[in-house]
Structures are given as structure tokens and as C-alpha cells.
Design a protein around this nucleic acid. Structure first.
Lengths: 237, 237
DNA sequence: TGCCGGGTTTGATCCAGCGCAAACCGGGGC
DNA sequence: GCCCCGGTTTGCGCTGGATCAAACCCGGCA
């Protein structure tokens, strides 16, 4: 509470969950919404905790990390502004399947489960949005599973970059900048490899001028080359 | 058409998509449904084709296979009786993301897209079923992505067996039989490895008495041992 | 009965990528 | 200025699995 009235309706209507809804729905949604500021590194959702809230990201970025029983972890996805997270668990076993951690200082929007369910019942448009969003997620996860089983790390990393640039890329004169602060470690866990291999591959690409790093941001100079690498083409050929 | 009137309403209500629905809904669903018999190896859905039908499996088994641009393929999942397939594409980009191939002679149920959408609008219970099903699928895919990035093949294969036994296992005196005809190749593509490695691992386990094969069926004698292997425990320790 | 063909097993070799270890780099605090 | 610390880079050796190759097994069929 407090600042949530500052969020304009268009912002709410732009959230993937709440597209194509009438204005009264957006109002109702905003009424039961809370805005929260979290600092860098904050654990927004803890894996295994009982699920009773749904979240959307307003500003900043968040990473979704799943940890196995052996302690090893994989980054399932990054969340950019407008995207939803922590919702699936509400519809399945009511346990969050992964951690959600703020990559940088961010503001998030929060709904309680009961409020969200009430909204869902009242405005069926939300349900079709949910279905659309989940469907897209499945499609992406399936692609990733295939890639992980068939491709080698260089291609995996290339795909990771493509995904990130698609999702959080801002086009500039020198190429596309990924608007998420990324450490090598993050990239590695996202692509499915180790810090060291990821670093090697990336510095090779940097040397060839395909990419560059400015601080925590990554700039892709030659998107088509990365794309080719993702397909498995060997650039040196 | 023809035989579809033979499918009893309870069968329809047991399909994951149509749980918890009133009888009139089931009737409506059956009215626009078609039953079809397909023989072993038949391609029910072709990857890339425009999506305009939804399917459910009545009897038999189906495998969902995605092929990459490089031609290499991965089995995304197996379908057992009662499960739905080919539905996501209706809600996303209207292209089937993978092939669906009959593993054995099977009977499938088919709905046209427009009929299904009409049903969805009329009976909101279906939408929540869809959400539940998709949510479960996402959870599973996420687990798999993590496993693929962190675990080694032995564990991956163990997990594959666990999934299959969970999904299509029939408990017997000698252990659990997986009710899907599986070649080593299938297992390999499902677990994310090669035919050869899969064969090696499985014959090792067979030698230790953990599993057995009778024809195309696989029997898991010691489920707990497989489970331990999936966790990464080394049995020889 | 022998042959054929799909599937499985097993051996031998090779290398991509992991693990370990050490050096390096840059920014913030004191 | 210097040091500390999180992150990055790089070198090196090892190995898990992929790849290549060949034998084997078995049911169906002529």
C-alpha cells in the first residue's frame, strides 16, 4: 500500500496477465494490489514455501533459481518489467518451485491468492491471459529441453543470449544491450554450464567483437553471428 | 465419428482436461468429439503444422518428439491414456511445436479448435482445468531443465524411469511395469543422452537386478534403488 | 531351415567441457 | 595511497560420454 495508487492503469493493463481487460477490471486489480520495493539480492520468493501470493515485476529485474536436493542450481528464467512470476504454484501444489531473487533494486507488485482467484472468477479474460502466458512458457521450456539434450555449450550460451536479448534487449547504435545486470555465473547457470566455460566462450566472442560488456550489462554487437552460432554454424568455417 | 458414442461419459470426465464438470458439459464435449484409431508409428501431429485440433489419448501411447533445425531430436514426453496433447499450440502461435507419434496402435479423441473454444467459453471449469494441467507441465519441465543442466546421465536416466513409472507404471508382484513399449533409443532421447550410453547404463542395472525387460516393456524391480540413483547416490558405495 | 532387419549390446577411441588452481582486474572503503 | 573483495580470466589435466564400429540377438518370413 501507499504508493500503489501511483501506478497508472495503463501500466497495469500492460502486464502480461492483464492484457485486453476492461477498465473496471484494471481498477479492481489495482485495488487489491500492493507495490513493494526490494533491494538487490532480496529473496522475494523462497523455494518450497507455501504459495499464497502472485507477483509481477514493475521495475528492475528478478531471477528465478531452482536448487536441487544436491544443492546445485539452475536459473530457470529472468523476469523483466511487466512479467509475472510466482503464479503457477497457485494452480498446482501450492509450493513455490524455485527462488525468486532481485537481481537489482526493483519494485514488484503483489496480489494475495484469494484476491487473484476472485478476480479470475469475475473477469474471465484473465484466465485466457493466464493460459496464453503459461502456453508460451511451456513452448520455451520445451525448446530449452531439446536444446540441452542435443546441443553443445557454445550453442547453449548463444541461445541464452538470444533469449535475453529478445526479452530484455534494447536496440542501440552499437547493437543490442541486455538490460539486466548479469554476472558470468548467472549466464552460466542460465545456459546450463559452468562459470569457467561460460567465461571462456564469452571472452572468445568478445575478442572477435561479437559482444562487449560495460559494467554488468552485456552488449551484443553482432546478433546475426550469435544467431548463427546458436544454429550450430561454426564461424571460423 | 462412428464409434465415439461408445465412449462412456465417465471416460470423458476422467480426461485431465474435463475433470469436475457437470454432466451436460460432458455431453456437449462428447457431441463434438471424434474418436480415431491410429496404428503404430502413425504421425498424429506434425511439427510446424498449423494447429487447429486438440487431442486426448483414449488407449495406447503416444510420444511427443521435437526436432531441431539440425535434425537432432528429443522426446519431450510420453502420453498415456487420459492425457491431452496438441492443446498448447491453440493458445500460442498456432503451430504445433513437436511431432506426436503413436508408439503403438492407439485410439485418440479429437476436437476442432472452434468447438473447443466454444466449450471453453461455455464451461469455465474447463479453463481452470487447462490452467492446472499447464501448470503441472511447467513444473515438470522446469525440473527437467534443472536436472539436465546439473546432473549426469546415470541420474538423468534414473529420473526418466521414475517419471515413466509414475505416469504409466502398473504395480505388480515383481515390481512396477512401465506400460509403454520402449526402445532403448526412446529412453535415450527422453533422458537426453545417446542410444549407446543408455543401453550401457540399463544393461548394468539389469545385471544388478534393478530392472528387467520383457519384450518392449520395462520392469523396475527396485524402485527405491533407482530413486537413490536419481538423487545421485552411488550404489556401489 | 536359413535369411533378413530391427533392435541391443559391447568394445575402442577421442575430445568437449568440467574441476581445480592461480592469477588478474577494478571499485569501494579506510 | 593501499587493501580487500567480488567477479573474471586463463592454464592444465582428467574424464564422462559421445562417436565410430562391429558383433549379437531374436522374431518373422520365405
Amino acid at each position: 500500500m501507499g504508493t500503489e495508487s501511483a501506478v497508472p492503469l495503463e501500466r497495469i493493463g500492460a502486464l502480461e496477465l492483464f492484457r485486453f481487460l476492461p477498465e473496471d477490471a484494471l481498477l479492481a486489480i489495482r485495488n487489491v494490489m500492493q507495490a513493494r520495493r526490494v533491494e538487490r539480492g532480496a529473496v522475494i520468493i523462497e523455494q518450497g514455501a507455501p504459495a499464497n501470493r502472485a507477483y509481477a515485476l514493475c521495475m528492475g529485474s528478478v531471477r528465478i533459481v531452482q536448487t536441487g536436493t544436491d544443492g546445485r542450481q539452475a536459473i530457470l528464467r529472468f523476469i523483466g518489467p511487466g512479467e509475472t512470476f510466482g503464479t503457477i504454484a497457485l494452480f498446482t501444489n501450492h509450493r513455490y518451485p524455485a527462488d525468486a531473487i532481485a537481481v537489482e533494486a526493483s519494485t514488484i507488485l503483489v496480489w494475495t491468492e484469494s484476491d487473484l482467484l476472485a478476480l479470475l472468477n469475475r473477469y474471465p479474460g484473465i484466465a485466457s491471459n493466464v493460459i496464453r502466458v503459461l502456453g508460451a512458457r511451456i513452448a520455451q521450456l520445451q525448446d530449452r529441453v531439446r536444446e540441452l539434450t542435443t546441443q553443445r555449450v557454445e550453442q547453449l550460451i548463444a541461445h541464452a543470449l538470444l533469449r535475453l536479448s529478445e526479452q530484455a534487449g534494447r536496440a542501440g547504435t552499437r547493437g543490442t544491450t541486455i538490460e539486466i545486470p548479469l554476472r558470468r555465473q548467472d549466464l552460466a547457470e542460465f545456459a546450463g554450464t559452468t562459470l569457467h566455460t561460460a567465461s571462456r566462450v564469452l571472452s572468445a566472442w568478445k575478442k572477435e567483437g561479437l559482444i562487449a560488456t560495460s559494467g554488468q550489462r552485456l552488449i551484443i554487437h553482432d546478433l546475426s553471428a550469435i544467431s548463427a552460432l546458436a544454429q550450430g554454424d561454426d564461424l571460423t568455417a
